[in-house]
């Protein structure tokens, strides 16, 4: 379980997170939804130990983050994390070199599924293909948790379909997933839990199937109620 407890963070005088608490379970997809603002990405970075926060606590499987945690949790940001002059194959080799949890077989499978060529240079990839490579770098790690920042933003419709495909084929199944997004359309049926974040505050946290079952509302209905209140 990932536990975020009362996390606050300022950039200069601007409060980006004002005491945020939520949990993300293993085997569930938790979606951080926010219409605007930088809070979502900051939150993911804070969980990953990529940005310090001012107060509060974040625990992953009951522990604070340490180097070994990176074999158990991975982050797929919306920017590519490999050197531009690397070929895809070299990026894979780098991952295999440093991570025990790298699953080369799965990386190969995903590469084939996306019809990418391992001799392609990262700097030559289109935005959609770069996002796919980024996704492979995260998903081919045998980790417990995957954090994804806006996996669909700025990507063409066919790439989005492919990525959504991979979600159900390779992503879930016993892993814990946190996805941030500002538009829910692509993944509304996929997520277990929605966390609505606005201006650094969590406005609502709910189980999506429960809200459909008990209140007959779609996720967008709830977003409309909460964000426009």
């Amino acid at each position: 379980m990932i536990e975020v407890k009362n996390v606050a963070k300022k950039f200069g005088r601007k409060k980006v997170l004002k005491g945020v608490s939520f949990t993300a379970e293993k085997g569930q997809i938790t979606c951080l939804i926010g219409i605007n603002g930088v809070g979502k990405t900051t939150l993911l970075k804070a969980i990953m130990g990529l940005t310090p926060f001012d107060s509060g606590e974040i625990l992953i499987n009951g522990e604070k983050i340490h180097p070994g945690t990176y074999e158990k949790i991975t982050f797929i940001p919306d920017t590519i994390t490999m050197l531009p002059n690397m070929k895809i194959r070299e990026a894979f080799t780098f991952m295999a070199d440093f991570y025990n949890s790298w699953n080369a077989e799965r990386a190969g499978e995903l590469l084939k599924f996306f019809r990418l060529n391992e001799d392609d240079r990262i700097s030559d990839l289109s935005k959609g293909n770069a996002a796919k490579v980024n996704l492979i770098l995260g998903l081919a790690l045998d980790v417990d948790y995957v954090l994804m920042d806006e996996p669909f933003s700025g990507i063409d419709i066919f790439s989005r379909e492919q990525i959504a495909d991979v979600f159900t084929s390779h992503l879930i199944e016993d892993r814990g997933v946190i996805i941030t997004t500002h538009e829910i359309n692509d993944i509304e049926h996929l997520i277990d839990k929605a966390v609505l974040l606005d201006n650094g505050v969590i406005l609502k946290e709910f189980d999506t199937e429960e809200i459909r079952e008990n209140e007959g509302k779609s996720v967008i209905d709830v977003m409309r109620e909460v964000f426009q209140a």
């Binding site: 569930q28 159900t168 049926h189 277990d192």
Partner: peptide, 14 residues
């Protein structure tokens, strides 16, 4: 359940 989730593009939990 996994195959079904993949075919229907839904969450395996569902």
């Amino acid at each position: 359940r996994r195959e079904l989730a993949n075919q229907l593009k839904i969450n395996p939990n569902t």
